[in-house]
Design a protein around this nucleic acid. Sequence first.
DNA 1: GCTTGAAGCTCTAGTGACTGTAGGTTTTAG
DNA 2: CTAAAACCTACAGTCACTAGAGCTTCAAGC
Lengths: 148, 148
Amino acid sequence: MNDVAMPIGQLARSVGCKVQTIRYYEQIGLLPPAARTAGAQRRYGEAHRQKLSFIRHARELGFPLPAIRELLALAHEQDSDCARADGIARRQLEAVNRRVAMLMSLRSELERMLKHDHGNRIRDCRVIATLADHGLCIEAHHADGADS
Amino acid sequence: MNDVAMPIGQLARSVGCKVQTIRYYEQIGLLPPAARTAGAQRRYGEAHRQKLSFIRHARELGFPLPAIRELLALAHEQDSDCARADGIARRQLEAVNRRVAMLMSLRSELERMLKHDHGNRIRDCRVIATLADHGLCIEAHHADGADS
DNA sequence: GCTTGAAGCTCTAGTGACTGTAGGTTTTAG
DNA sequence: CTAAAACCTACAGTCACTAGAGCTTCAAGC
Ligand SMILES: [Zn+2]
Ligand SMILES: [Zn+2]
Ligand SMILES: [Zn+2]
Ligand SMILES: [Zn+2]
């Protein structure tokens, strides 16, 4: 009786997300609508919990919702080839690789900026000077498609 | 006469951003309002170009707009101590470091997922299986504050 | 001076993936 | 039966832009 008629808050706690997130997933059609009590409150079972857990895990790995939607659909076709699922994961890996590369060069630029004595005046500050002039940068850190 | 009365499109081209971005920065008060022609078109000078270039460079390094707002204000106080500017850059570096660490562990998890034969059925696919069960993950890749 | 096409203007809405709030209703334990 | 906790819907806000509609202005050639 713990899992056959779980209210939304309990489901949220059990997968580690917010109640609103679950309602949002239902709203955008990612999670199927839950059963309702006479008073219109949602009640969930184990199937919902598994689906939501899949979604959250994929989100933690950075997959965007459209990719997750596709992965969920694929997960149900037990007998078909997994090439499409692998392709989605591979694209995600490539996106992660691009972001890592980007962030590493940002990091080294920030570290270089910060390598100066404390107690400087603003006019001698390398942080301000570097921001004002990309010519002072060494790495080509500029974003090309993937940011943050 | 190239830089004393530049229209917005030329300014955008010269710093490599969109026209709308410049109007947006003005709207949120990050960039001071431009001079206008009799017909209400914006005209920019060199001071604006430098400020915008500073903003774009900082954005490319991942600084959020509130941080950039503060850095711009600090840049004008030539004689004061640069500790605050350095602090902002250090916080940005820390944020970048957190994201890099996160993404590295996502990457290794994605690589592990993908290390299986092609031509599998979905039911044997490690990508789907791993997403369905975080127990199959090795690294603690879970987001704690900084995501994507 | 006139025409024309590029570039400009304002205003509004949309992006992704949620998160927060207001104001009301239902459930449940005591 | 009451009171608190949890739930409901609906909408606004986040971040940093980006896109579009519908209109006006500018600059160049004639
Ligand atoms: Zn400094
Ligand atoms: Zn730079
Ligand atoms: Zn596979
Ligand atoms: Zn995992």
